[in-house]
């Protein structure tokens, strides 16, 4: 459904943020993009959703294909109409609007009022808690509720590909579990998911495939099961494998070897 082909992004004409990223999300697939801070995960998502321009970023090489169409030149609102929804990092709900209005604001592509009503019911079905708080200003919702609202708002655009940027950021563990549960449910309902996470352990438990990105390059990719077994991933992203005998630790710690 989505494929990035050797994409290179430059900010401010000087800063090379991603250097030849290629990745693929199959129809209805569930893919994670993992990596440390500043690795280029968010930039990759913005490349797909077309949100680079306000940050003075530019795709200087490569292609972005979505459903057989090269979308690299399309403005962001048109990509949303094609079925790409991007849930931004840090939630970014419309704070002075109520949850209800937040959902309505995301329906500028729909003409049919009944359709909007039905979509709203669907979102409230996924997130019953939002329905209870539908007329409070969104800025006063809790972090978890805001994240739910951000996802619900994206669902109003009827996405075929839902991209989530750090949905677990700053949330209590039980909320992370709840959010991931909902993401899995969305996936079962046929929405393609591209998940960006620093919390690699949680992400690898739910996705089928994953890409590991570092310094703007994809350094590893494969089935989630296989990646979970990889000793490097375990060491650097899953917090080591079991106990360590610190007497036996050598001075030169094992280095990440995939760049060699």
């Amino acid at each position: 459904m989505l494929s990035l082909n050797n994409v290179e992004v430059v900010y401010d004409r000087v800063f090379l943020a991603i250097k030849g990223v290629s990745l693929e999300v199959p129809e209805g697939g569930m893919v994670a993009l993992l990596g440390a801070n500043g690795a280029g995960k968010s930039t990759t998502l913005k490349t797909i959703s077309g949100l680079l321009k306000p940050e003075r970023g530019e795709v200087t090489r490569g292609e972005v294909w979505f459903k057989g169409q090269n979308i690299a030149g399309l403005p962001a609102p048109e990509r949303v109409r094609l079925g790409i929804a991007h849930v931004l990092e840090g939630r970014r709900v419309f704070e002075h609007l109520t949850p209800d209005e937040n959902l309505v604001a995301a329906t500028s592509m729909h003409r049919d009022r009944r359709r909007i009503g039905a979509l709203k019911e669907m979102v409230y079905d996924y997130f019953p808690r939002l329905k209870e708080r539908r007329s409070v200003k969104a800025g006063y919702l809790s972090g978890g509720e805001q994240q739910m609202l951000a996802i619900g708002r994206a669902l109003m655009t009827e996405p075929k590909l839902l991209m989530l940027d750090e949905p677990s950021l700053g949330l209590a563990p039980y909320l992370v579990e709840e959010i991931f549960g909902i993401i899995q449910r969305l996936h079962r309902d046929g929405v393609g998911i591209l998940l960006v996470e620093q919390n690699a352990a949680a992400a690898l438990d739910v996705v089928t495939d994953a890409y590991l990105i570092e310094n703007g390059r994809v350094v590893m990719s494969g089935k989630a099961e296989a990646l979970k077994q990889n000793p490097d991933i375990q060491e650097f992203y899953l917090g080591g494998s079991g106990k360590k005998d610190y007497h036996a630790v050598k001075h030169y710690r094992r280095r990440k070897r995939w760049l060699a």
Binding site: L51, V80, A85, F94, A106, A154
Partner: peptide
Amino acid sequence: IAAWAVGI
């Protein structure tokens, strides 16, 4: 930016 992201 969030407005762009939801298709406005």
